[in-house]
Amino acid sequence: MLRMRQFRCDRKMVGAATLLSLSLVGVVSSAADAHAQVKGSQQLEADVTAASAKSPADRHGYVLGPQDALTIRVLDEDDIGEKPYTVDLNGEIALPRVGAVHVAGLTAAEVQARLTERYHAYLKNPVVTVSITEYRSQPVTLLGAVANPGVHQIEGRKTLFQVISEAGGLKQEAGNTIQITRELQYGALPLASAHSDPSGKFSVGDISVRSILKAEDPGQNIAVMPYDVITVPKAEMVYVVGAVHKSGGFVLSERSEMSVLELLSLAEGMDRTAGGKNARILRASNDSDHRNEIPLDLNKIIQGKSPDVSLRSNDILFVPNSTGKSATLRALETILSTGSGVAIYHPY
Rank of each mutant, 00 (worst) to 15 (best):
R3N: 10
M4P: 15
Q6P: 02
F7Q: 13
R8A: 05
R8K: 12
S23G: 15
A36F: 11
Q42E: 14
S52G: 13
P56Y: 02
P56E: 00
R59P: 09
R59Q: 15
H60Y: 15
G65Q: 06
D68N: 04
L70N: 05
V74R: 01
L75R: 11
D76A: 12
G81R: 05
Y85M: 10
L89V: 14
E92F: 08
I93F: 06
P96E: 03
G105T: 01
T107K: 00
A108S: 03
A109Q: 09
R114G: 00
T116P: 00
R118H: 12
Y119Q: 02
Y122H: 11
L123D: 04
K124E: 07
V127S: 02
S131G: 09
I132C: 07
T133D: 09
R136C: 14
S137N: 11
L143P: 00
L143H: 01
G144C: 07
N148F: 10
I154M: 06
G156R: 05
R157N: 14
Q162V: 09
G168C: 02
N176H: 04
I178G: 00
Q179T: 13
I180W: 03
E183K: 13
G187I: 09
G200L: 11
G200T: 13
F202I: 07
G205I: 03
D206T: 15
D206W: 07
I212W: 02
L213A: 12
G219K: 04
P226N: 08
K234G: 09
V240P: 12
F250E: 01
S256L: 14
L261G: 06
L266Q: 14
D271L: 11
T273L: 10
A274N: 00
G276F: 05
L282S: 04
R283S: 12
H290K: 06
L296G: 01
Q303M: 14
S306R: 05
P307M: 13
D308F: 01
S310K: 14
I316Q: 01
P320T: 01
G324W: 06
S326K: 05
L329N: 08
L332Q: 04
I335R: 05
I335D: 04
G341I: 06
G341N: 08
Y348L: 14
